[in-house]
């Protein structure tokens, strides 16, 4: 996949080529393009002057980065304590079954990917999932197929906001 050179340069400049801000740069790129391609690492390394190996270290250490594209519609099931107590593992299984992918993987059509998240801080509404930036509370097993269908339709209609 071609990387967006202009965008990455814009991000680097926004953070003033500051070595301390490489995490912020990577986060910006990740949130726009849903993954960190190899060339982005090279570009940042060259422009900011941080060795590639350090950047790769950062990009693999933090959960927030992915080196392969995540789905257009990333679904994360909260695995925090509160959600866990209220049955999150079963929910994760249900999503995995419905989407026919293992957690951490992306569907063949690139539409969905399934992840776990450690508590978006909505424990009062447990069990919780996040879809993109949206937090959805009180999810039951019975709602799983309906939720997937809803987002599937949004993607098909091109109304899903994460679409670049």
């Amino acid at each position: 996949m071609q990387i967006d050179k202009a965008k990455i340069n814009e991000i680097i400049l926004k953070h003033g080529k500051n070595k301390e801000d490489v995490i912020a740069m990577l986060l910006d790129y990740q949130s726009k393009f849903r993954y960190i391609p190899r060339d982005v690492i090279y570009t940042i390394s060259k422009e900011v002057g941080v060795p590639v190996v350090k950047l790769l270290g950062v990009a693999t250490f933090y959960r927030g980065f992915s080196l392969i594209p995540v789905g257009k519609c990333p679904i994360s099931v909260c695995m925090g304590t509160a959600c866990y107590v209220l049955g999150a593992p079963r929910l994760l299984e249900a999503f995995s079954r419905e989407l026919n992918i293992d957690p951490g993987k992306t569907t063949k059509d690139g539409n969905f990917s399934l992840h776990t998240i450690n508590c978006p801080g909505c424990c009062g509404l447990a069990p919780v999932i996040t879809v993109g930036d949206e937090v959805i509370g009180k999810v039951t097993l019975a709602k799983v197929p309906r939720l997937i269908e809803k987002y599937h339709k949004l993607i098909e209609k091109g109304e899903w906001k994460k679409e670049e």
Partner: peptide, 10 residues
């Protein structure tokens, strides 16, 4: 209207 993350999620 009470709007925290939870509130918005709800």
């Amino acid at each position: 209207i009470h709007m925290g993350t939870c509130g918005i999620a709800a």
